[in-house]
């Protein structure tokens, strides 16, 4: 809070006007529309619209495809968060040893942040191409017949790898920052007491890194739930057999391709609920992080 301020009453509104106008027209109004539509049902020809209360929500709970999308999202989020955070933590620990060339390594590891998720998806799609891709070629040598067009497990593996690849750089930077914030004296004291590197990691580094880890977990879940839409749309398009249809993809699929506005609206509202919970968790966590 500022003690000294300006007294004008009109000027602050003029300064806020562009932001508020865009927020109202492109955020609040459409969000309100999604909520409103979630209570409506249109007939097959779009001629008659009737108010149906919570029917669309009830239908979601009974829809096997929706429940499948929930399950796919959970698997996908956990896999991407675990893979990208695990790899990033290992790399960050390696850099934190104060090696020669640490800065060069960092530069060589952070640039994938700038690659668009869609472009990352297309590149991995190429690498995994069943006929000419290099990775299926290598897999055939060990007797595995890769085909992400038919095999749900292969398709999921493909999108998990593409999405994680892009996220490693982000997690790496935050882990490095987290590691640098841990006082060296703690680890030195433990070393003098005879604790080896593994033990120091388990009893000092990892616990002190937990705020960073938790923060990254939330960010990664948000990333996999929303930003990876492009990875999936540019590669598997949710298939085969809905095996990579995450919730965000299903909103798009039902709304634009299926033109089922009621169902799409109800799904949007559920997703907004999830984002609100995640945002609140993130903000409460950041308030607590100040203590560290």
């Amino acid at each position: 809070m500022k003690r000294t301020i300006f007294g004008n009453q009109l000027l602050p509104w003029l300064l806020l006007a562009p932001q508020l106008a865009i927020t109202a027209v492109f955020f609040l109004w459409p969000a309100g529309q999604a909520v409103w539509q979630s209570f409506l049902r249109q007939d097959a020809f779009g001629l008659k619209t009737s108010f149906v209360g919570l029917t669309n929500y009830a239908a979601l709970l009974g829809d096997a495809k929706y429940l499948n999308a929930v399950q796919v999202t959970v698997v996908f989020s956990i896999a991407v968060a675990a893979l990208s955070m695990g790899v990033a933590l290992m790399l960050a620990l390696a850099v934190d040893r104060g090696l020669r060339g640490a800065r060069a390594y960092t530069t060589l590891l952070v640039w994938p942040y700038a690659v668009a998720p869609a472009v990352a998806g297309v590149m991995w799609w190429f690498l995994f191409n069943p006929t000419i891709g290099i990775l299926p070629y290598a897999l055939r040598a060990v007797g595995y017949d890769w085909n992400h067009g038919l095999q749900p497990r292969d398709a999921m593996t493909l999108v998990v790898i593409a999405a994680s690849w892009k996220q490693i750089s982000y997690n790496f930077l935050f882990f490095v920052a987290g590691l640098q914030a841990i006082p060296g004296s703690l680890r030195e004291a433990a070393a003098i007491d005879g604790a080896g590197p593994a033990r120091r990691f388990a009893t000092i580094t990892f616990p002190l890194l937990s705020p960073t880890t938790f923060f990254l977990l939330v960010v990664n879940v948000v990333y996999t739930m929303f930003d990876t839409f492009a990875v999936i749309h540019a590669t598997t398009q949710g298939g085969p057999m809905q095996s990579t249809t995450i919730l965000v993809y299903k909103v798009f699929d039902d709304g634009f391709l299926g033109l089922n506005l009621g169902a799409s609206g109800a799904q949007s509202v559920v997703l907004m609920g999830i984002v609100i919970v995640l945002t609140v968790v993130q903000f409460r966590f950041i308030e607590r992080r100040v203590e560290y």
Binding site: Q19, L28, P30, A31, V248, S268
Partner: peptide
Amino acid sequence: AIFITLMLPVEVRIVP
């Protein structure tokens, strides 16, 4: 009102 935009990514409200 500004804060709330944080909770409404475009993917979520794409159709409206």
